[in-house]
């Protein structure tokens, strides 16, 4: 009897490992680029999907050979990276910071293999065969902050952060700067959930902000943000999404979203590789508005008036030209305020 149970349990565990699926396409002798998704999978309608779309564009426009492997759980990262290395790929991508440790480990084991990772930078001690791609989140946050500052009627705006740190600081201070430029009278209520997963807490914090009179809340808090959006629906107020176009979660309430164009960033790396033949290496590649790697959601024109959108266009150009230096932490924000 015990033996049966043992077999039964083993089968369960094996079945949970069995979801990693592969996909290969492309021509001979081309540059081969492959990516490992994190647990979201390649159709997650979020950054994994965006990443794969970027590679598909690289295939169609640049003729590179592409493939991906999906990870069903964190333990799949290393085996998936290993398969892609064995598959003779020129560049292997890890999509998402969760893969940082696994990717670093493999980069040390295979010094001749080139690696890149989205949303993570290893710092000065990193091996030279790995590059981290970061996004200037503050620039996209600035633009949505500007929209919020213009659209608000109560002059009270909310910001819900996940866990305080350099990454979310960029969202917060970029957003504050955008509101500051658009509307000096607006106050921003800012609160952290100390979590990236607790949707109920996000809902509770956002509800409190709406009760306090906020009419727009911006979140940079991962899954906590799903709760923020739910609060906006129940209270029938505005909410601003993050990372991807979140309009599908609440078409009537999502005003705009601060987008991170993972796919465009990966396309850019592929393009540079194709044109120069050189791999990006060592340290971090920080991409922003000028690279088309961040921006506001395409659905913004549904709720945001056209004249504000044309101002956003103008603001984008001023950021790209360097006229506006968007702050990304408290210190740069203080400087920003004294200069503007």
């Amino acid at each position: 009897m015990k033996k049966n149970l043992f077999v039964f349990l083993i089968l369960f565990f094996v079945s949970t490992f069995a979801f990693a699926a592969g996909d290969q396409e492309g021509a001979e002798d081309a540059i081969k680029i492959a990516m490992v998704t994190d647990v979201g999978g390649v159709n997650d309608q979020s950054f994994n999907q965006s990443a794969w779309e970027g590679l598909q564009r690289a295939r169609d426009e640049l003729g590179v050979e592409i493939s991906y492997l999906e990870s069903a759980q964190d333990a799949d990262y290393i085996p998936n990276l290993q398969s892609l290395i064995d598959g003779g790929n020129d560049l292997v991508w890890g999509v998402g910071f969760k893969m940082a440790d696994a990717l670093l480990q493999m980069a040390k084991l295979y010094p001749d293999q080139h690696f890149a990772i989205i949303d993570f930078a290893y710092g000065p001690d990193a091996p030279s065969n790995v590059v981290g791609v970061l996004f200037k989140a503050e620039q996209a946050s600035f633009l949505v902050g500007y929209i919020a500052g213009k659209v608000t009627e109560t002059n009270t705006i909310g910001f819900v952060g996940g866990i305080e740190g350099a990454i979310i600081d960029a969202f917060e201070y970029g957003f504050l700067a955008g509101v500051y430029i658009a509307n000096r009278d607006a106050t921003v209520l800012s609160q952290y959930a100390d979590s990236f997963v607790d949707a109920a807490k996000g809902k509770s914090i956002a509800t409190q902000m709406y009760v306090q009179g906020a009419d727009i809340v911006f979140h940079a808090a991962g899954s906590v943000g799903n709760g923020v959006i739910e609060a906006a629906r129940e209270q029938d107020r505005w909410v601003i999404g993050v990372d991807r176009d979140q309009n599908d979660l609440a078409p009537d309430n999502v005003l705009t979203s601060a987008m991170k164009e993972v796919g465009d960033a990966m396309y850019k790396v592929a393009k540079d590789l194709k044109e120069t033949g050189e791999f990006p290496s060592g340290g971090a590649l920080i991409l922003g508005l000028s690279d088309g790697a961040v921006g506001i959601a395409p659905t913004s024109n549904v709720h945001v008036p056209a004249d504000i959108l044309s101002e956003i266009e103008e603001m984008s150009q001023r950021i790209v030209s360097g006229e506006i230096a968007v702050p990304y932490n408290l210190e740069t924000f203080e400087t920003f305020k004294s200069e503007n």
Partner: peptide, 12 residues
């Protein structure tokens, strides 16, 4: 009820 769909880390 609390939210209106299921996604990966909803139960955490």
């Amino acid at each position: 009820a609390i939210v209106s769909h299921f996604w990966h880390p909803l139960i955490s």
